[in-house]
């Protein structure tokens, strides 16, 4: 039930922003639409609602956003350099890295962050064993441990504080 209410509120906010400037006709339709969507699909949205009551997680999320934007900028400059350079300086390959995150949301955020940061793109996730397969445009270490240190650790510690128990 809590999951449905959260989805209803988020859906209503998205509807209100899409129909900016708000007026009462749009808002009434919005209430019906988001109630319908929340009723149909609300069960899947948030599994562990008790996590939303910890204020420290929101602070860590606020810290995560600038870190992410900075890494994203670095990634773009890195790729731009490789694409413009006449010799095309790439040594691509798919490496395997380890992660200690287990929950779905944390793994999704981790692989999205990896995809948008320098030279790496998540190809697949092995959830049971905790491995990520990452395509790396400039393979510096084939070894699992060393690759993990470079690719994953930037985000893992923050995400663990946000999403894990």
């Amino acid at each position: 039930m809590a999951s449905r209410i959260i989805l209803f509120i988020l859906g209503f906010i998205a509807w209100a922003l899409l129909n900016w400037v708000p007026d009462w006709q749009h808002m009434v339709i919005g209430i019906f639409v988001s109630a319908f969507v929340a009723y149909m699909t609300g069960d899947f949205f948030v599994k562990r609602t008790h996590l939303l009551t910890h204020p420290r997680r929101y602070l860590w999320f606020l810290y995560y956003v600038p870190v992410f934007i900075w890494e994203c900028l670095k990634a773009n400059i890195d790729v731009a350099y490789r694409v413009i350079h006449p010799d095309l300086p790439i040594h691509p390959g798919i490496v395997k890295v380890k992660t200690s995150l287990r929950s779905d949301v944390a793994l999704t955020f981790l692989s999205n962050s990896i995809t948008l940061t320098p030279g790496t793109l998540t190809v697949d996730v092995d959830k049971e064993k905790g491995f990520l397969y990452v395509h790396w445009i400039e393979v510096r270490h084939k070894d699992v441990e060393k690759a993990t240190k470079i690719v994953v650790e930037r985000f893992e510690n923050i995400l663990k504080r946000i999403f894990e128990e």
Partner: peptide, 20 residues
């Protein structure tokens, strides 16, 4: 256009086009 295979092209297109 320049990068050699699917995966490298995905790298360029995802990162640069998302931020762009």
């Amino acid at each position: 256009v320049r990068l050699p295979d699917v995966y490298n092209r995905l790298q360029a297109s995802t990162k640069c086009i998302t931020l762009g």
